[in-house]
Amino acid sequence: MLKNLSKSSFISFYNPQRVRNLRERIIAITLFGCGVFSILVTIGIIISLFSEAIGFFLRPEVNLITFLTGTNWRPLASQVSPENFGVRPLIRGTLMIAVISGSIALPLGLGSAIYLSEYASDRLRSILKPSLELLAGIPTVVYGYFALSFVTPILKVVLEDQLGIRVSFFNAFSAAVVVGIMIIPIVASISEDAMRAVPRSLREGAYALGATKFEVSTKVVVPAALSGIISAFIIGISRAIGETMAVTIAAGATPRMTLNPLDGIQTMTAFIVQVSFGDAPSGSINGQSIFAVGATLFMMTFVMNIISASILKRFREVYE
């Protein structure tokens, strides 16, 4: 190693200074380009989504107001009119998935995080955490399969056969359950990081006052890590909103203003996939409609990510 080093620096010692400086400059500029590239990606996303979305809204058949307020989403209807381009059923479907999967993943993720951070021994944690993270690494198409092959049949047996409640084969609930399972590790991992960042001295202070581990966890650690935990919740929900394959496969393809999770619905993402499969030509109203929906989706997740990042930043400033 040392031999190698002295040899190569011997060579560069004989390089003319100017060549060396020029080379350093070129490298620095190239690396700077790589660093700035990510900004270009963001700009690219915004331009490609919004240029097509604006094209969509400039059409005489649609308008922005009925798009945002309308309760009918029938882009393939023979009569192309603004009433058939109301995005709210898709948003309703997306939010239904987000709410149900969130109510599964947030408590379980937080519980897992408290267990991993406060209760598990280092050894147990080193086994449990990677195993839990496997859940996040499984492709979403697999979760879609699992929803149809396992969750829906169970719902059918339990709800339909036993209680007589009608369950559609494609329904929001099965999809939401698997999305919930999928985001448990995300919520758990970020919450656990936040809890582990809480200084040990705070825990000791509470123990020294005669608090039990339960009290230390819930009354000191969780409140102290609260902003990190909230940020984890937002990221988890934003993931559920952007989830595509599981809901496309399991939740159905019928945009519907329903509150019944056992009905088939369609999410924004599922609609985009549906149209892409239909091979809508570019420039057609359907080809453009997916960009209007995509832009709506992007805005929703973008705002959530920004909020969670700023909460997390404030949290880090307190403890680092």
Binding site: L202, E204, Y207, A208, G210, T212, P223
Partner: peptide, 20 residues
């Protein structure tokens, strides 16, 4: 230990008030 710690209090090297 919970009862013991209630009866035998402790103050630490660095002040560690809770974020409350």
């Amino acid at each position: 230990p919970v009862r013991i710690r209630r009866q035998i209090g402790m103050v630490f090297q660095k002040p560690n008030p809770f974020p409350k």
